[in-house]
Amino acid sequence: MDRIPILKMGDCLLVTIQVDMHDQLAVSLQEDLTAQIAKYASRGVLIDISTLEIVDSFIGRMLANIAAMSRVLDAQTVLTGMQPAVAITLVELGMSLSGIKTALNVERGMELLRQYIQEENEYREPDGSEE
């Protein structure tokens, strides 16, 4: 079965969704990503959807789930590159994806993640341990 590739870059994971996803593919991405976050102790996840032509309620829910699951696994998710037509449609559909951080493009998304990870690290340093 097809799978969406996940790239590891330092303490971040990068995903580019380029295919017209059917539902099962979206579900396996959710499982693969959470497994990899745990495996590599990743701190950030960047999902680029600049080539995605639609986001319906199912895919929207999957993206929101990924962000929530990552959060629980100590990683921050940023969604990048949403096309304006997709954004208009998604909001009219009734989804605002309010729990997800977004950035206009991959570059800004990476910047946001780095900033976030740095802030988290500074916050954790004083007592010297994460626990």
Partner: peptide, 15 residues
């Protein structure tokens, strides 16, 4: 935008 709206509605209803 109109294409995207129709295709998104299609996706919901076909599902």
């Amino acid at each position: 935008v109109d294409q995207t709206k129709l295709v998104t509605a299609t996706s919901e209803l076909a599902r």
